[in-house]
């Protein structure tokens, strides 16, 4: 037992040494909706620069609270543009480092082929019990969904049928498990490896909602780090942009 413990300690020490000997590691907080494309980008980033990006995926609101409490993140890829601006204003983000890395698109989606038509008429016909969306107070996509319902004049009529997930991930989960027939989620969520997944969807016209700008910002803990700067630059590269586009984002 004791010997095993000693072996483990040696292993941990060696692992730590090999890490510090290698190139820098960047700690990145990534909005949940951008987690899949970011994993791909991180692989390309490591190939191109030798630096490693350590990704933590979660909700932007939670990241804000964690960053305020001293979380070790160096770069934030938020789901909105307000949180990065707020962090800069409050001194937790580096001034001038904020930029839009993707613009999200809203879809109305059902896993059932043919259920959602390409004009969103399914909402007016109302042949469903539950319509899932993300909490509009917490998630920009949820807010965009309520804007869309208002624009279509259906907000009041559909109110009793709305079920609210804490994030777009949960909204999608309600739909995938069949408990809600359809839901408003991010276009990126119905992409897998750059291809559309099964089901039917309506790509909500941009005129119905405020553009979902997803901004990145360098955080105070990443200030002056070459690797952080390299990653921020890499997000604007053609290679990264191609990956971002293949997941249904605009730029």
């Amino acid at each position: 037992m004791k010997a095993a413990f000693r072996k483990l300690a040696v292993f941990v020490a060696l692992a730590g040494a090999s890490l510090s000997a290698r190139a820098e590691e960047v700690s990145v907080a990534v909005a949940a909706n951008f987690s899949a494309p970011m994993q791909k980008i991180a692989v390309e980033f490591e190939k191109a620069t030798g630096h490693k990006a350590q990704l933590v995926s979660g909700s932007t609101g939670k990241f804000y609270a964690q960053i305020k409490s001293g979380a070790p993140f160096q770069l934030l890829l938020a789901a909105d543009d307000e949180t990065p601006a707020k962090l800069v204003k409050e001194g937790d983000g580096v001034p001038g480092s904020q930029f839009t890395y993707a613009v999200g698109k809203l879809v109305l989606w059902s896993p059932t082929p043919g259920f959602v038509d390409d004009k969103g008429e399914v909402l007016k016909a109302g042949k469903f019990a539950h319509l899932a969306l993300a909490n509009p107070k917490l998630a920009p996509y949820g807010f965009a969904a309520t804007e869309t319902l208002k624009a279509l004049g259906l907000a009041d009529a559909l109110q009793p049928r709305l079920v609210i997930g804490e994030s777009i991930t949960q909204a999608q989960q309600f739909v995938v498990s069949g408990n809600a027939e359809l839901g408003f989620i991010a276009f990126s969520q119905i992409h897998k490896d750059g291809k559309l997944i099964d089901g039917s969807y309506w790509l909500v016209p941009a005129k119905h909602y405020t553009p979902i700008r997803q901004d990145a910002v360098v955080l105070a803990k990443g200030k002056g780090s070459a690797a952080v700067e390299a990653l921020a630059g890499f997000l604007k590269s053609d290679k990264a942009r191609a990956i971002i586009k293949s997941y249904g984002y605009e730029l």
Binding site: S59, H130, K137, I164
Partner: peptide
């Protein structure tokens, strides 16, 4: 509750979920 509730005021939006919402919304 978070998993099966759907956060509907007056029906499934209980205290713990409401606190979570407030924290998340800062």
């Amino acid at each position: 509750v978070l998993m099966i509730g759907g956060n509907i005021p007056g029906k499934t939006q209980v205290l713990s979920v409401q606190i979570y919402n407030h924290v998340e919304a800062i």
